[in-house]
């Protein structure tokens, strides 16, 4: 009898939690920090890191990397260029690799940034196409890229050694 009561109560609780939804708890301190970076978009969360594209009031649009626990922006030397406009960014769980789609001069390109080397590497689209959005696996070994090619949007999967 007692067991049946416990099971019924458990089922009711499960039903309630499934239908009730959840009010989200904002991370207030971090959100304040994000507001100071300007207008933010294209978030990518992984392993305690947040990569985003932020536009300050002056119009400068940059990739930013935030250490979520410490609430600190982390420098990305060599990634942001004055002649490039970032469109999409993804980060791996160690924040060692960032994939960035950016517009530079009259072309859109995909680059891989390795933070330990402070270096970017161009990842060409083959066959030719225009990249738009990127997503990393947590280990940074697999990259999914949304590509416009021949009038269609396709998804390329890149395994990166």
């Amino acid at each position: 009898m007692m067991r049946r009561l416990v099971l019924t109560a458990g089922a009711a609780l499960l039903l309630l939690s499934g239908c009730g939804g959840g009010r989200l708890r904002p991370l207030a301190g971090l959100n304040q920090q994000l507001n100071q970076l300007g207008q933010g978009r294209s978030p990518s969360l992984s392993g305690g890191w947040l990569a985003l594209i932020a536009a300050r009031g002056s119009g400068r649009v940059q990739v930013q990397l935030i250490d979520v626990k410490r609430r600190n922006p982390v420098p990305l030397p060599g990634l942001n260029r004055p002649d490039a406009l970032p469109i999409s960014v993804a980060v791996d769980q160690n924040a060692e690799r960032l994939a960035v789609v950016r517009q530079r001069e009259d072309r859109t390109e995909l680059v891989l940034y390795k933070r330990s080397l402070q270096a970017t590497q161009l990842l060409p689209m083959e066959p030719a196409g225009v990249p738009r959005q990127v997503s990393f696996s947590a280990d940074g070994r697999v990259l999914a890229v949304e590509v416009s090619r021949g009038g269609l949007w396709q998804i390329d999967l890149l395994e990166i050694p």
Binding site: L24, L27, N31, Q39, R41, S42, P43, L45, L52, V68
Partner: peptide, 18 residues
């Protein structure tokens, strides 16, 4: 955690939620 890009009156901002 969940990061959400929010838009309101023409401006966008990011918010993180626990």
């Amino acid at each position: 955690q969940l990061a959400v890009e929010l838009t309101s009156q023409g401006s966008t901002r990011l918010q993180l939620f626990d």
